[in-house]
Every structure is written in C-alpha cells, then in structure tokens.
C-alpha cells in the first residue's frame, strides 16, 4: 500500500506546517501500522534535549531514536537508558565524535547560537549514512518582538569507490517566523503629526503574521577521499553549499513569492483608475493614428 503512504505525504504537504506534529500523531492514530513509514518520511521540528551525563544540549529526531529513547551524540548514551540500544560500531563512532566537533564549529560560525548534532549509522552494503541537524530558536523578550526558529535536517548516504566516494544528500530546512502587532490611536496617522484633531474618529488594530514551512532539496556528488576524516570535510562542504543555496531560496519564497501572491489578490492602487488610464491612452493613440 505505497499508495496510502503517498496520500499521507501529500496531505502533510498541504496542511499547515505549524501543526505538523499534531497532524502526524493524528495520522498515526488512524493508521498505526504506518507509524514507522510516517515518522521516517515526514520531517518534524527537532526537539532539544539535555545529555544527562555531559549536561550538553543535543537534538532528537527519528534518526537517534530507539523505541522511546534518544541517543546523545556527546555521551553516546540513550535517555531513558537502554540496555541494548543501537550504537555505531567503534570505528564509525570515532568519526561521529569528530563530525560533531566540526559541525559544532560550523554552527557557531553561521548560527551564532543554537544546537547541532550529527548521527552516523552503518549501512548493510558496507557504506554508512548520517544526519547533520542544526536548530536555532529566537524567543522574543516582549510579545511585540518577532520570534522564529530554523531547523536543518541534512541526511546523507555514502559509498566508497576506490579513492572516490559518492554522496547522496537530502536537505530539509524548516523555518518559522511570527510577528505580533497591535496599535491604537485617535484620528488618522497623518493628523496626529500636525497635532490637529479632526473629529471623533478613532481606531484600534491588532494582528499576527505567521510565515512557516519547509523546503527540501537533493544533490548527488563525488569527492576524493584520503582517509576516513575526508567524509567529514566532503559532507561539510556539500552541506554548507546546500544551506547557502537553500537560504537564498527560502528568502525568495518566504519574502518574495508569498508577498507577490498577496498582491495578486489585492492591489493597493486603484485598479479602476489604472483601467481608465489605459483606455484613455488607447483612445489617444487611436486619434493619433487617424
């Protein structure tokens, strides 16, 4: 029933991104047998958790989950503790430790805050796969200040081919921005400046603007490898390039595209006036031709 999963994913692509968690849970309630398919293919906002051993924050998602427990990249321990939780083989764990250190620097350079986590796992065919997670939240000091959150999920798979490695990267960025506004006053704004009172007209305005969503992009590339740590620099370069590209894309869609559509619905300028002017021009042009 791949068809059913397709319908679930199509539905998730249409419903408000602000309610993803609630809707995924509702879908799991309807089709409990498909819980793993859903959790594995619908990106949800990353949860920040604290490693009980090191006190460091890490990110929880489906990739570091085993049952109800999540593994911390810093201590390699599951919380709640698991006797036989899945962990990477020692060689891969060593790479995972380095990757976490390196991407923590990346996080500081670009996000100047937030949390990062890298998880790696062995693949059956001998290669390995991993996920690089980054999250930053801006909490406003006052309700009038804008708030927002950025969640990056970069999933990659790699296969070594001699001195080359082939990488497949799927990146999803979830971005949410919220602004609340409220104002109150007498008369029109222009009148206030002149200090004139023009009558008893007064107004009050309140509102909220929410821009939220996610975008996903994929790329496949080959890079040379010298030793195991080459995988970190290679995926690092790919992810950096991808985030720069996607940041531009998000900027275009969030602040350009959605705004343009608002203007496709309503025009600030008087459309009738424009229409009349155009007709007048046509008439004038016509009289010249005659």
């Amino acid at each position: 029933m791949a068809d059913l999963v397709d319908s679930m994913l199509d539905l998730m692509r249409r419903l408000p991104p602000t309610r993803t968690e609630e809707n995924v849970n509702a879908l799991i309630g309807v089709c409990p047998d498909y819980a793993d398919d859903l959790l594995g293919s619908v990106d949800q906002p990353l949860q920040v958790r604290t490693d009980r051993l090191t006190g460091r924050e890490y990110l929880a998602c489906d990739y570091n989950r085993d049952g109800e427990s999540f593994r911390s990249p810093w201590s390699n321990e599951y919380d709640p503790p698991l006797e036989d939780g899945t962990v990477p083989l020692p060689k891969l764990r060593k790479l995972e430790i380095s990757a976490n250190e390196v991407f923590d620097t990346y996080r500081e350079m670009y996000f100047e805050g937030g949390v990062s986590s890298v998880y790696l796992w062995d693949l059956e065919d001998g290669g390995f796969a991993g996920v690089v997670l980054l999250k930053k939240t801006m909490t406003p000091a006052t309700p009038q200040e804008p708030s927002g959150s950025w969640d990056s999920i970069h999933v990659f798979e790699t296969a070594e081919r001699g001195r080359q490695a082939h990488y497949k990267l799927t990146s999803t960025i979830m971005l949410q921005l919220i602004t609340k506004k409220g104002s109150e006053g007498d008369n029109a704004d222009g009148d206030k400046k002149n200090g004139e009172k023009k009558g008893p007209e007064s107004w009050k305005r309140d509102g909220e603007v929410t821009l939220s969503g996610s975008m996903t992009r994929q790329t496949e590339q080959d890079w040379p490898i010298h030793d195991a740590s080459s995988h970190i620099t290679n995926t690092g370069k790919m992810i950096e390039e991808m985030e720069i590209k996607m940041r531009n894309l998000l900027q275009e869609v969030y602040f350009g595209k959605t705004r343009d559509i608002v203007y496709d619905l309503r025009s600030v300028d008087d459309l009738e006036k424009t229409r009349r002017q155009r007709e007048l021009q046509k008439e004038l042009l016509g009289s010249f031709k005659r």
Partner: peptide, 26 residues
C-alpha cells in the same frame, strides 16, 4: 490572508488582523 506555496516544500503565510473604527458623526 492565507497563502500556500508548495513547490518542493510547504510554505504558508497566515495572517489575522482586527480593526475597530469609531465612525465620525458626519
């Protein structure tokens, strides 16, 4: 206002705004 943009993603703008005006006697 509700806007949905869903090319390789799902981005939504949702706004609400309330206004209350007292009409001048004129």
């Amino acid at each position: 206002v509700n806007i949905h943009y869903y090319e390789q993603g799902n981005v939504q703008l949702s706004t609400n705004h309330t206004i209350s005006i007292t009409l001048p006697s004129a």
